[in-house]
Computed example of a mutant assay.
Amino acid sequence: MSKIKIFADSTSDLSKNLIENNQISIVPLYVGFDDESYKDGVQITTKDLYTKVAEYDKLPKTSAPSPLDFVNAFKPFVEEGRDILYIGISSKLSSTLQNAKIAASEFPNAKIEIVDSFNLSTGIGLLVMKAVDFANEGMGVEDIAAKLRELAPNVETAFVPDTLDYLYKGGRCSATQALMGSVLKIRPIIKVVDGGMIVGQKARGKREKILETMLENALKDKDSMDKKRVFVTHTEGLEDANFLKEQLEKELDVEEVIITDAGCVISSHCGPNTVGILYILNEKI
């Protein structure tokens, strides 16, 4: 048994196989409709989410795990004498990380490292899997945490939503922007920069052309891209994800290109048929 226990939250969007095979523990965020609240990925699936959005005609509210949720998650492993490493969603997007820090303060005699990914979805997952790699190499928890903090700014996250409706309903674009996007077939390529989401590029035309633009952007980084793994993450957009995976495998010299499904929290902000490409740069250009 490794002395280090690695934690992430449900927004890391790692597959069940990656979680189970690498003994990663997940602390779920919450997704709520009116008075009902569900644990992301535990009590509600992405398909359930979209059914409820159609039923309620509004997006859910999402909320962070409480400090007590983190205390309950950490406690059994602290009692085993293990070191805790938690890699979480950007502190600029959620209070999840702050609640994890509050929980860590309840164990003053334990080694607990809380790492801000300054990212979302498998932008977090990339760092979690790097933590697994480093732990398997025998690195200590403090050294792993320091290395992850160095790598966090080098994570490249870009995704394309199929519709602006969810971004509009979630208050991330105006009604005018949503209407113009629909009429002119303009779709933003959303990027994560400094822990927040920005419109990195506005692409016009058929979805295939927009996907090719995102693919071209990623391939510009191929010489400086980390060779271990690249993620293609989607929400109900498997056909597009498979297309991107095939193209990336043809063009990149990486060990694996992994497709994962986005969980409910990420999907609630992006909408169905969103797809993204995520990777780590060896050096930030």
Rank of each mutant, 00 (worst) to 15 (best):
V53Y: 00
A131L: 01
A104Q: 07
A110W: 06
S224N: 15
L164A: 09
K111V: 06
K284Y: 12
T96C: 13
L167S: 05
E106R: 14
Q247N: 13
V230P: 06
Q98W: 05
K284L: 15
I280T: 01
N119A: 14
T122E: 15
E256K: 15
L179Y: 13
L148D: 05
E256Q: 14
Q23G: 07
I144V: 04
A73E: 01
T235S: 14
F74H: 03
L148V: 02
Y56P: 04
L179H: 07
P28H: 10
F107N: 04
I266R: 05
Q247G: 06
N154T: 08
N22E: 12
N21V: 02
A218P: 10
Y279V: 00
P272D: 04
S268H: 07
G88T: 05
G263D: 01
R207T: 12
K185A: 09
T157W: 07
L14G: 04
I89C: 02
G237D: 06
S268F: 02
T11R: 09
I259C: 05
T213V: 09
T122L: 11
Y50D: 04
E283Y: 10
K228V: 08
N242T: 04
K47F: 06
V155K: 11
P153W: 05
S10Y: 04
G200Q: 01
Y168N: 12
G276W: 05
D165N: 09
L179Q: 12
S121D: 10
E106M: 11
P60L: 02
R207G: 07
N21P: 00
I24D: 04
R204S: 10
V160S: 03
K5C: 09
D261Y: 01
G123L: 05
T157R: 09
I280P: 01
K39I: 02
D143E: 15
L167T: 02
Y30L: 09
I285W: 03
N217D: 14
G237K: 03
G88W: 06
E80W: 06
E106I: 03
V257W: 09
D57N: 12
F118S: 08
L97G: 00
D226N: 10
G88I: 15
S2H: 12
V115D: 11
I186D: 08
P76F: 08
G170N: 12
D143T: 12
E249K: 07
A131W: 08
